[in-house]
Design a protein around this nucleic acid. Structure first.
Lengths: 103, 103
DNA sequence: TCCCGGCGCTACAGAAATTGTAGTAACGGA
DNA sequence: TCCGTTACTACAATTTCTGTAGCGCCGGGA
């Protein structure tokens, strides 16, 4: 069970997922791993969050089997993690259009 | 400009978006509006968060033009909000498969 | 006119999460 | 042995969230 917190009280997978991804920096971390594995410190530097949270999020994502730590290359997406990322990729294009319509 | 906070310091739309959606309850709120408009109290009750945060998130989402308040029916997704939701919908199916592979 | 219920929303103290900084322990190479 | 790199932890200060109460507005009866 993936840290049954908050909205995930029901246990419905979509709620557990929204809960997990709705924590600060989680989406960002997955995003940063989209191209290649990253080291702990590398993530910390590019994201700009404290090591405490980074580590919490990495632990949660590992428990959720979305990422894993390869000692030789760093943190990387697992197969399910890659799948999730593919669902997220369209956000990139969409966000550009969205930003234009805000101004 | 959409509350330039945290990861959005760069101003890159994807970062602003990930920042916005990565706040507690934001994804959940968008999700709850997927089928029909919801009243403030209705959201508060089904989500189970305090009115303070609910209101903060609703304000941020309104500023981002992803939702709007229709006095007659309640909070609902705007056109861009609907677009974003369509990108999120596959998460539902995917989360089921993901949950099965965790057990 | 005077309630009453529903509406969005605010106040505020206590609890929890996050930050920022420092430091630990393990490992490998020179 | 010392040095750099690694993941990660400790902890006080700060920020955010929670839980509960209540405000002000409005429209519909009686």
């Amino acid at each position: 069970m993936v840290k049954g917190a908050r909205g995930s009280r029901t246990g419905r997978p979509i709620m557990v997922l929204l809960d997990l991804l709705g924590r600060r920096w989680t989406l960002r971390i997955v995003w940063e791993l989209r191209e290649e594995p990253r080291r702990f410190r590398e993530l910390q530097d590019t994201i700009g969050a404290s090591p405490t949270v980074i580590n919490s999020r990495l632990s949660e994502l590992r428990e959720a089997k979305l990422i894993e730590l390869d000692p030789d290359s760093g943190y990387r997406l697992t197969a399910p993690g890659e799948e999730l990322l593919r669902l997220m990729l369209p956000l990139h294009v969409w966000s550009e259009k969205w930003a234009r319509n805000l101004a």
